[in-house]
Computed example of a mutant assay.
Amino acid sequence: MVNITRAADLTMVGANGGAWVAPVGTAALASPLTQPTAPWKALGAISEDGLTNGWDEESQTFTPWGLTSPFRTQITQSVRTFGLTVWETSRRSVMSLQYRIDEADFEPDGDGLTKFAETASPVPDRRAFWFLVVDGDNYRGFYVPEGEINDRGDVTYKQDEMSGFEWTVTTYPDAAGNTVYHVDKIPVTPADPLS
């Protein structure tokens, strides 16, 4: 009989987490569980859907004459994304990302009103992002040195629904050619008793 091994402490449930944004060039945190400080800005409450880490890859296969299966595959595109819905739509760091406007432009006027306009010709708005997923004593951190919101969902204003900004953040390579830096704290995998 085959011995099936399982270890619940090696699983990951996105029980909690957070997200922060900073200008491109901001260094990663020294420790994932350190509270981010300026210039990092919190994105606040995230919807119960949590954080989605996506892969969008395309490849080209090469099948030699006389065979019906490829004998080589070349990755031609590999894009990493992060998806989330932020609920604190009046937080300045969140508004700055949603509308591609500098955070300082959301200062209220003398009457307490914040006024801004959306441009018909948006320009690139790259930022650094820090995403943290926590499950008890285990965690996963994702540092994105250069990312940009390239997809925004519709915003609903409704009596029985929380309004939120639904985003997909696309990662871009830094000077070292890396798009995402991972920092994980997970338990050591126990040795298989039968090996």
Rank of each mutant, 00 (worst) to 15 (best):
Y157A: 11
K158P: 03
K158T: 13
Q159L: 13
Q159F: 11
Q159W: 07
Q159C: 10
D160W: 06
D160P: 08
D160E: 11
E161L: 13
E161D: 13
M162N: 14
M162V: 14
M162R: 15
M162F: 10
M162W: 08
S163M: 09
S163C: 08
F165W: 03
E166P: 13
E166F: 08
E166L: 12
E166C: 07
W167H: 09
W167A: 07
W167T: 05
W167V: 06
W167F: 15
T170E: 09
T170I: 08
T171K: 00
T171M: 00
T171G: 00
P173L: 03
P173F: 01
P173K: 03
D174F: 11
D174N: 12
D174A: 08
A176C: 05
A176M: 12
G177A: 01
G177K: 02
N178P: 00
N178L: 08
T179L: 00
T179C: 04
T179A: 01
V180A: 02
V180M: 05
Y181F: 09
Y181T: 05
Y181E: 02
Y181N: 04
V183I: 10
V183Y: 13
D184G: 03
I186G: 12
I186R: 15
I186D: 09
I186N: 12
P187C: 00
P187I: 00
P187K: 05
P187M: 01
V188M: 08
V188Q: 14
P190I: 07
A191D: 11
D192L: 09
D192P: 06
